[in-house]
């Protein structure tokens, strides 16, 4: 689906953001792309969609070089950004105009998503609320049945019921020929949805693991005292104890907290690498 080899990229008059970046993302997954502000998430997404061009290296997405922006590539990649512009037209008119660009666009699926999100078909897009616009974009993107759907902060601006609906529709729309990349800071909204998890820091992929691997290697628990330093990866002080991320030495099952995992990776990348690189 996505093959990145030794990719380098930097903005004009600035040092390189990515240097020899390597990522391989097979299809059939909902990838969670996490990282602090300025880690390079949005830039990576723009490179994948062909909105920015790499300086060096190989970048192949659904069998195409994004830089060429061939129609056959653009049909297979849909990007729903955090901030967006929607033309002043009704939902039905937008769908009538833009859906034919996507050969596998499913009107039935779109109708289903619209009903799920309770969006008014006859209202102008420009008069919808931010959350409604977001739900519309998501519905359209899912209905295109494109091979790669990229969602940048998809749950920002969604109310609590909509967040559950979001999880429901995203889960129902994934299939083995399709991948989603969800870039977000709202990691609690993504728990049990994204797998594998990619964490970026300062232009590098510092973590790329699936749930199975993570639960095999790490344990996340609440403890009253800090565990031994040789197994401790990260600890956050809380009421009456600590929330800790430790090495899973007893092969116990754990409930994964993305927030703690993220903190552990960003604050103790060396130890995380040691644990995941050990046999």
């Amino acid at each position: 689906m996505i093959e990145i080899e030794r990719l380098s990229f930097g903005y004009k008059k600035k040092p390189l953001l990515f240097e020899h970046l390597d990522i391989s993302m097979p299809s059939g997954n909902i990838y969670g792309l996490l990282g602090k502000n300025g880690a390079g998430k949005s830039t990576l997404l723009k490179l994948i969609t062909g909105l920015l061009f790499p300086k060096q290296g190989k970048l192949q997405v659904v069998g195409f070089q994004p830089k060429d922006r061939r129609p056959q590539f653009l049909q297979e990649v849909y990007l729903a950004t955090e901030e967006f512009y929607l033309p002043p037209m009704k939902i039905a008119q937008f769908v009538q105009l833009y859906s034919p660009f996507y050969p596998r666009f499913s009107h039935a699926a779109f109708q289903g998503y619209i009903e799920e999100f309770q969006l008014p078909l006859k209202q102008k897009l420009s008069s919808l609320s931010y959350g409604q616009k977001k739900k519309f974009l998501l519905s359209f993107g899912l209905a295109t049945d494109c091979k790669l759907l990229i969602l940048d902060e998809p749950t920002n601006g969604l109310d609590i019921p909509s967040k559950s609906q979001f999880r429901k529709v995203v889960t129902s729309a994934i299939h083995e020929d399709r991948s989603f990349i969800i870039s977000t800071h709202q990691i609690r909204d993504m728990e049990n949805l994204i797998d594998p998890i990619i964490i970026m820091d300062e232009g590098k992929v510092v973590f790329f693991q699936d749930y199975e691997q993570i639960s095999q290697k790490l344990t996340i628990s609440r403890q009253t005292t800090l565990p031994d330093e040789d197994i401790l990866v990260y600890a956050a002080a809380g009421l009456g104890g600590y929330q800790v991320v430790t090495k899973n030495i007893e092969q116990t099952e754990t409930n994964l907290s993305l927030e703690l995992l993220f903190q552990a990776v960003v604050n103790n990348t060396t130890k995380i690498n040691e644990i995941f690189n050990s046999l």
């Binding site: 723009k46 969609t49 922006r69 129609p71 653009l74 990007l79 950004t81 512009y85 660009f101």
Partner: peptide, 18 residues
């Protein structure tokens, strides 16, 4: 000239020639 409109225009599935 507008980055929000720009990315939509550039990612619309049509060739540069079209």
């Amino acid at each position: 000239s507008n980055s929000l409109k720009g990315f939509q225009y550039l990612t619309l599935p049509a060739s540069t020639f079209e």
